[in-house]
Every structure is written in C-alpha cells, then in structure tokens.
Design a protein around this nucleic acid. Structure first.
Length: 114
DNA sequence: TGTATGACCCTGA
DNA sequence: CTCAGGGCCATAC
C-alpha cells in the first residue's frame, strides 16, 4: 500500500462522511483529508473510486456551489437529481446554499460563508 | 522525457 | 458576468 492508496483512502473516507443533504467543495475535501491545496487531485480520486464503494460523490461540488460537470452532461444531470432528492435546490450549475435552521445547513453556511 | 488535459481554486481586472 | 494568470498535480499519450 503506497502513498497514493493512503491518499485515496483519506479522500474516500472524508466523502463518505458527508452528511445527507450537505455539500462540501473539492478544496474542503482535500483539506479535511490532510491534502491541502490538492483539490484537483480530489477529482482524480473520485474518478478512481470503485462504484462498489457507493460514495456520495454528488455531495462534492466546486467552490461557491458550482457543479463541476459540463451543463447538460449526463453526470451533471445525475448530480442535480441526487442533490434535489436530498432537498437541495439547484439552479443551472449552481447549488443554492441551504437556508439556515433546516438542519444540515450550518456546514455549508460556514463553508461558502455568506 | 515532455506536453496536454482536467469532476479545482483564488485573485484581480 | 467574463477572462487571464498563477498555483496545484495525477494521468494519458
């Protein structure tokens, strides 16, 4: 098990821990995984994640609530669908910050502040 | 070996 | 809002 595997496991662990209805940016995932400033690599890690892990990858979005996939692409639609299924509003490629007081909101309020 | 590409991020104009 | 420019770094060719 080399460094890469450890890093992959760290990222997956963080993503797996994102609560339902909440979102985390790539940069934040990287940071919480102990890989500061490696947001880009988080994308690689997600792409490399075996589907069998059933990671909630849809809860990982770009900074500022931006969906990272090209609008109209299959994955973009899939992510929108899953986020809305968890009660999040999505407008275009933007995931609207959750309103305060609705439970899962505090995290991203802190994240993309306001 | 070198270059290009990308599910990124941030600042500044 | 867009665009540019810097940083980041694994992968693919």
């Amino acid at each position: 098990m080399d460094e890469r595997d450890v890093a992959l496991a760290s990222v997956w662990r963080v993503v797996r821990a994102i609560p339902r209805g909440t979102t985390l940016s790539y940069g934040e995932v990287a940071r919480q995984a102990g890989l500061p400033r490696r947001a880009r690599w988080v994308a690689v890690a997600l792409k490399a994640a075996p589907p069998s892990l059933r990671l909630p990858w849809h809860r990982v979005i770009g900074a500022g609530g931006r969906i990272a996939f090209p609008p109209g692409s299959r994955l973009h639609r899939e992510q929108c669908r899953r986020l809305r299924a968890e009660g999040r509003e999505v407008i275009g490629s933007r995931v609207v910050a959750a309103a305060r007081g609705t439970g899962a909101a505090d995290l991203d309020a802190w994240l993309w502040k306001a």
